[in-house]
Design a protein around this nucleic acid. Structure first.
Lengths: 167, 167
DNA sequence: CTTGGAATGTCAACAACACTGACATAAAAT
DNA sequence: ATTTTATGTCAGTGTTGTTGACATTCCAAG
């Protein structure tokens, strides 16, 4: 007698409310760990998570415009502007007027900006590396699969474009 | 010629900085999806994420004390107190003086509190369920493994105790 | 029984980070 | 010439977190 269910004969015990709850709590506690190391570094510099996110994505896409950054970060321009202003004042980010379209501002990390970004991202990668190593490659593949399925649809598109090398 | 590396012959390409970066960004975008549905419901009730978290863990451990809740949530008592006060005023949470130790307050959800908690957690579970279903049971196992490895050590202990049915 | 300390609550002040709304400027697009 | 777009800025508001100080209650140890 064949088993019923999605995925061709797998049992569906992993979809019980109990299993889902464990996943939800794991997500909550893991995210704390995920941000813990950068948070400590940021605190020393009197910055917050918003600064980290800006540095990360500017580093990721050199010369990105403010509008691009806004759509990736999903915040208002007022909120982003406050963060960008401090980063520019502190000499971590440089804002250049666009050549083709002079309304646009293109954002670049300075030497100091790259240094802080490297410090933050190395701390975050170290934890991720340890987790990946402990869990193994097959677990990592599953980890990414579930996370991608969890994103909102429009965000997933951005993520996928970003994931597969697009400036 | 035997391959070198941890884990008995696996290649370590999943530990490159590039792979780690993808995991970091996946974590960032996925967490947005993770909180998106509850956030929308909370906004209608003029509550925030902190209220959700309190409701979740009170529901999870009926009669828990304020101190227990503090250590799980990892915030200051002042911050938690503000949230608890509104929940109690709004009749979603009941605070009872401890019988054995009358300094302690034991926290319970009222009927209304259970209703909102159920609404929030069902929304969150629905997204998690869809993601689990899309990714499959093996991916889910990996997802949980990596998340658990990512937690801070003391938090992981709490999570594991909580995970395996402890009131 | 008195005292010390733990658990809790409250007040005040402050900061980070998000939001809305309104307005200004410059430049591209029509 | 007018509209739209990209950006920046000012003002106000709300949630959530933080410290610090202080009061209350009450168990427990001396």
């Amino acid at each position: 007698m064949p088993e019923s269910g999605v995925g061709g004969g797998e049992n569906l015990l992993f979809l019980t409310d109990e299993q889902l709850r464990k996943g939800i709590e794991a997500m909550f506690f893991a995210y704390r760990g995920f941000t813990a190391d950068p948070d400590r570094i940021l605190a020393q510099h009197n910055y917050g998570r918003a600064h980290h996110r800006a540095l990360h994505f500017i580093n990721r896409s050199h010369g990105t415009t403010v509008n691009n950054l806004l759509s990736v970060l999903g915040v208002t321009k007022q909120s982003l502007n406050r963060v960008l202003r401090t980063l520019i004042e502190d000499g971590l980010v440089e804002s250049r007027v666009g050549r083709r379209d002079r309304r646009e501002r293109h954002l670049y990390l300075t030497e100091a900006g790259r240094a802080l970004e490297a410090e933050l991202s190395e701390a975050q990668r170290a934890r991720m590396r340890a987790a990946y190593r402990a869990a193994g490659p097959q677990a990592v593949a599953g980890f990414r699969q579930v996370l991608e399925a969890m994103m909102e649809d429009d965000i997933r598109q951005q993520y996928l474009q970003l994931r597969d090398g697009r400036p």
